[in-house]
């Protein structure tokens, strides 16, 4: 039997926020995410979902354990290497879309490519936008877009570099049901079409139905 190497592996990662009464945001946890796997993380507010996502996204360092992405131990990477790695191999989608208001939709999408000093493949990017249904809004600024459109632009930005992992933090939190299901479908599509690993934090049970795997998190403890 051939063992498929996980794209993302967390070994005994944990996070504590110090203070008079320390907060154990994430208790020691080990997780493996396979390529093309769509994982939903469900938990109440303050349960440690976002902390987990930030650690998986290399934005925060875990207090213990190690994070391995595509076979690379993240803790051994320098800040610059980590940034480069994040730029190329991880995509983020946010609840608040987090688009740059001073950039057009097109520029927001190609931002990570240009940030890397590369030039975008125009046809490929247009195809992506077309697939996400936002090609016609490419020259609009974010404030000229609807919430659903903004979120799709955000999703396009996360997918444009063809990252190994896409981390989505409640991507449908600000959307209506129609737009929510459309975004979820698109994530599912990315997962199936491009074999991308999707980790989506949500507290919407309906959204979790799109996932292959469901993780529950409660008081910093992750269970399957």
């Amino acid at each position: 039997m051939i063992e498929i190497k996980p794209v993302l592996e967390a070994r005994e990662i944990s996070k504590t926020y110090p203070g008079e009464s320390p907060v154990y945001a994430l208790k020691p946890t080990s997780l493996r995410f396979q390529p093309g796997e769509f994982t939903a993380v469900i938990g109440r507010s303050g349960s440690g979902k976002s902390t987990l996502l930030r650690i998986l996204g290399t934005l925060d360092k875990s207090d213990t354990g190690e994070l391995i992405i595509e076979g690379h131990g993240v803790s051994r990477l320098s800040e610059a290497e980590l940034a480069r790695f994040r730029r190329r191999r991880i995509g983020f989608v946010h609840q608040d879309y987090n688009l740059f208001p001073e950039y057009t939709a097109w520029e927001n999408v190609i931002f990570p490519i240009r940030l890397d000093g590369a030039t975008e493949d125009r046809a490929k990017t247009e195809a992506l936008l077309d697939r996400l249904g936002i090609l016609r809004c490419r020259d609009r600024f974010p404030h000229e877009l609807s919430g659903g459109e903004q979120q799709r632009v955000s999703l396009a930005r996360a997918l444009v570099t063809e990252p190994a992992v896409v981390l989505a933090d409640e991507p449908t939190g600000n959307l209506d049901a129609e737009n929510s299901s459309r975004v979820a479908e698109l994530l599912r599509f990315a997962c199936d079409e491009y074999r991308q690993t999707i980790v989506m934090v949500t507290h919407d049970a309906a959204m979790a139905d799109y996932a292959d795997r469901l993780l529950r998190i409660r008081d910093g403890v992750v269970t399957e």
């Binding site: 994040r86 987090n98 740059f100 940030l115 930005r157």
Partner: peptide, 15 residues
């Protein structure tokens, strides 16, 4: 600050 955080997520270097 928000913009920097976003840029960080997109892979911009702290330096």
């Amino acid at each position: 600050r928000g913009k920097r955080e976003l840029l960080r997520k997109l892979g911009a270097e702290e330096t």
